[in-house]
Design a protein around this nucleic acid. Structure first.
Lengths: 126, 126, 126, 126
DNA sequence: GTGGTCTAGACCACA
DNA sequence: GTGGTCTAGACCACG
């Protein structure tokens, strides 16, 4: 099940993003074990070193902890999910607002822009 | 007036963003001449090679054209501004929605998130 | 009574440190029997293999001896405690002085640093 | 000028320690450029990837910043040296006190231990 | 089995 | 030239 990576963002960060998404979506829960480095490497079709780097990164960010000889686990803290979601949500909004502001847009125009996006897509509420 | 560039985005693209902002905000109009590569390089405190690359990039995107021996000019097309703004706006919104969707958020939650951002900031209109 | 181990130091050495502490503090005396590997493993909440390794290590260091079929005992030598304490103390001081010297600090500054540490902690004598 | 690394601590962290020492001792000042990754790798007799990791680590710790295409520089902040020294000094003292306390030693005994160390070494004030 | 480190050598974008 | 990423393959300590 090899995957592909397109963005210019480093693969090890793209993998981190996927893991974050899985956690936020509830596909992985607090306390769960992540696949081993080697296993994940095979799944993703990348080198184990790349996954190693991913795991080191998300551990540094405090989302995950490694238990020696046992593996890498999502921190067993029930608040980790909402905390992570809020953090990522905030980051996205701030980036979005900052960029739109540079285009000379007002708050109302930003909100309206997002609303219109969904209207034009019709009932595409996935 | 040396500036500083911190983002991980390449400097030459950050410079392009600034130029786009200036155009969209009306500080530069269609048909206007951009500063020479060397002049801009001094203003920005970066290497002329970097500005060269910026100009090549925004020319490639069709925003600007080079007249030999005269310099680089914003295309003398009255619609260029709104066209540029619309394109960038659309890009921002699509990226934003895509990212937020990955966090498992609904359309309503996205809109609400942006609105709340401005409420919490209060009269912080910069 | 499961415990937790955070330090980057190997768990089997952390367990050894605890045993050394117990001996030096007099909680265990020369000639005393240590808990069995399995018992200790349960107490510490770690794998028996890990304790096995701990016992091998402290035996190798001459603090403990294994009597076949009977268990692991602290050597029945009255001088073992002060000897162990002196050795560990010396190791700590040498490491400390070496590290501080690398920071360009003088002997006086080292002594003063330790003294000040306790002053600032005030009556925080645990 | 190949060097050797003995400690069980990873090489990339030992290199970091050396750089920190150089900064604290004033051999490198704020704003100075560090040797390039490749150059340092040759000096230290290790693989460039290892140095890369060192540089990434000390950048993450805020001691150093990289200017794209130019190199890695000690942050141009006059307070960086004393700040770094204080941080490392504090770390050393806390570790030392913690370890000595585990040996059942009192504050006075710790101070005395360090003082005696220097006395026995005689006028060995390097 | 697990994660962590290291080497070798390659390729890339950036300035 | 610089730092950053990635692969391939190896070795290690730990549990």
């Amino acid at each position: 099940m090899t995957e592909e990576f397109h963005s210019s963002k480093p693969i090890y960060l793209q993998v981190a993003d996927r893991i974050y998404s899985s956690i936020v979506r509830g596909e992985i829960s607090h306390g769960d074990k992540l696949p081993s480095v080697r296993e994940m490497a095979v799944n993703m079709g990348v080198n184990p070193n790349t996954i190693q780097r991913t795991y080191a990164e998300i551990e540094r960010e405090g989302i995950v902890e490694t238990k020696r000889g046992q593996g890498t686990f999502v921190k067993d803290d029930p608040g980790i999910v909402s905390s992570l979601q809020n953090r990522m949500k905030k980051e996205q909004i701030e980036a979005f607002v900052g960029n739109m502001r540079e285009l000379g847009l007002t708050a109302d125009e930003m909100v309206e822009g997002v609303q219109r996006y969904f209207m034009e897509k019709g009932g595409h509420a996935e």
